[in-house]
Design a protein around this nucleic acid. Structure first.
Lengths: 219, 219
DNA sequence: CGTTTGCTAATTGTTGACAATTTTTAATTT
DNA sequence: AAATTAAAAATTGTCAACAATTAGCAAACG
């Protein structure tokens, strides 16, 4: 008999996950002001656990909180977007360096599975699933790195990536940012050339930024 | 008239800072179990703000919290230490790349000031001040980078660096880990050779790790 | 004697009321 | 009428009591 540990789901944890999903899904739009009383009434939860959830989302960067002033949903400026790209490039290059020697056939099979899921969600035009798939696809290298500190920094960064993708996808359709780059990513991950993979990450990110600039000029 | 914004210091914020200081200073030893009731009585604060402080310190990695199980002060294993060094190398190299073009005479003067303060604390054998000085010295490049996302990741990492330094200094005296490397660091920061500086960071960190290994073999 | 079961004490999670602070609104003054 | 002040309404921060969960221990059972 195989049993895995059951970890109790605290109320504050459930609230945190719920709010995160809502923000990702764009139900709470960027810049929007939130009040604790309203949230606690709508969620049928007292303010204690709600405040704990809010605090965690603040640490993740999804909410902005000022003492006695209130709460706003994070919005991403162009400047912050540039920072997001450069930071992610740094972390993901490091992840590749750490993980490269740990690749196995099983791990590569795992990556292909994630890729297929992503493509499927894309074709189905399911924005939410596509964003999840994109994050899950790129999480692969971090998990493989087996570097828990790096993973915790990726967990800190990924919500911002998600929120940006959600915004972008809603504006430009689901086939937006990383349309074709991911199959190159998949190919290079399967190859045996670390240097080439590192270069691709750099290009991949730069391409994403360029698309953002382009979409800004149009609008 | 120049006035900076006054932000009210909430109770939870004060508790957070107080607890962080106590952990850094080693008043709460690694692995030690803490109970909320005891802390709230000793700090003369109700459990609400205390829990918020605890939550933040958990996010910083200084405390480990398990649902319904309790609270422990973080202890650093050798494995985690290796991760800490590699992660810090990655971030600090990135910070140098981002900040290199932004160096000014005033900024370099600032760095020298931080260096002097650090040396002074060292000579005075003031462990707490030396750790603060070390962090402040190395924070310089992150501040100069003007990259707020990078800075927030450094803020996440630095408490772990502090806690490690505290432990190490208490065991081996204040002149421990980075004794001579910092003046090289200072010299290279003032020079005009980015590549050399990047290499030094790598060496700097590796040297720190080697010292740890050496001290482990002795004990 | 070792194991299991049910109880008790201790600890964490949650709640609703209260205090401190800010924002809004209306009255007052110039 | 515009600007300033003062009361009020709304919102966030804090507290103390209550519920849920865990850990320790003793009695019951094999």
């Amino acid at each position: 008999m195989i049993l895995s540990e059951i970890r109790p789901l605290t109320l504050s944890g459930q609230v945190r996950d719920m709010l995160r999903d809502q923000i990702m899904a764009g139900k709470l739009s960027p810049g929007e002001r939130l009040t604790e009383t309203d949230l606690s009434q709508r969620l049928k939860v007292s303010r204690g656990p709600l405040r704990e959830a809010i605090l965690q989302l603040t640490e993740e960067g999804l909410l902005i909180k000022k003492t006695y002033k209130g709460l706003r949903v994070r919005s991403i400026s162009l400047r912050e977007l540039e920072e997001l790209y450069s930071m992610r490039t740094t972390l993901e290059r490091f992840a590749f360096e750490e993980a490269w020697e740990k690749k196995t056939d099983a791990a590569l099979e795992d990556l292909r599975t994630r890729f297929d899921y992503l493509e499927q969600s894309r074709n189905a035009q399911d924005i939410s699933a596509a964003v999840n798939g994109e994050i899950h696809f790129h999480s692969w290298i971090y998990e493989l790195s087996d570097h828990s500190l790096l993973q915790s920094h990726w967990r800190k960064l990924s919500p911002l990536v998600r929120i940006y993708m959600s915004i972008h996808n809603r504006q430009h359709g689901v086939c937006g940012v990383f349309m074709d780059a991911n199959d190159t990513y998949l190919k290079l991950a399967q190859d045996d050339n670390l240097a080439a993979a590192l270069v691709h990450i750099e290009n991949h990110m730069q391409k994403g930024l360029d698309q953002v600039y382009a979409s800004l000029e149009v609008s």
